[in-house]
């Protein structure tokens, strides 16, 4: 999810950039140099995963997956998402330089938040894990849509309807993200629990 160039106002862009720089710096501090290759590979995996389109009725939506990025990486999710967004801008021109800060916050803030909210539930029993994972995937997308809507409304009252439509349009994406995150976490718990730091 990203806001194109040329839409947001200067104060919103500046605010987004300042928050993004601070959060990226905090994320980089948590990322030791030895962990960079691992984070880079995961970043590449998320980049590719975000290109995957899953069918929903007659159309298809692409994955956002910031919920599971947050679960796996915590604070390190911020630089990982920033880098993935920069690559998307350079390779596909989704987003761009001036909106990079706002877009990083849109994607990364829910990821970090969901990490703190839902991570503790992952060591509980199967039903709770599944429910928490579903909530994590859905909430991350919902929060992203909400931040994007807030950025639009802060730019101008004129965008009120546009941002309401934006949040509404993400309803089905939320559900699908929830389902995919749920099965994905269940899979990782069986195959590689160490990735979720559960030992």
């Amino acid at each position: 999810m990203h806001i194109s160039e040329g839409i947001l106002s200067a104060p919103v862009l500046t605010g987004g950039a300042i928050f993004a720089v601070a959060a990226t710096a905090a994320g980089l501090r948590k990322l030791s140099p030895e962990k960079i290759p691992q984070a880079g590979l995961l970043s590449a995996a998320f980049f590719v995963a975000s290109l995957v389109h899953v069918p929903i009725g007659p159309v298809s939506v692409h994955m956002v997956l910031n919920g599971i990025v947050g679960l796996l990486l915590g604070w390190a999710a911020v630089p990982v998402i920033a880098v993935a967004l920069l690559l998307q801008a350079v390779l596909f021109q989704f987003g761009g330089i001036t909106s990079l800060g706002v877009n990083t916050i849109i994607m990364a803030a829910p990821a970090v938040l969901c990490h703190y909210i839902f991570k503790p539930f992952l060591s509980k029993n199967h039903t709770i894990v599944m429910a928490a994972a579903f909530a994590c995937g859905a909430a991350a997308v919902f929060l992203s849509a909400l931040i994007a809507a807030a950025a639009l409304v802060l730019t101008g009252e004129a965008f009120r309807e546009v941002s309401a439509a934006l949040v509404g349009a993400h309803f089905f994406v939320m559900i699908i993200e929830g389902i995919i995150t749920m099965f994905c976490v269940a899979f990782l718990k069986k195959v590689q629990p160490s990735m979720l730091n559960l030992g």
Partner: peptide, 17 residues
Amino acid sequence: YAYLLGMLFVRAAARGE
């Protein structure tokens, strides 16, 4: 798709190592 993506993450992490 979820299992496929999960496998992608597992392989990416192993490759990162």
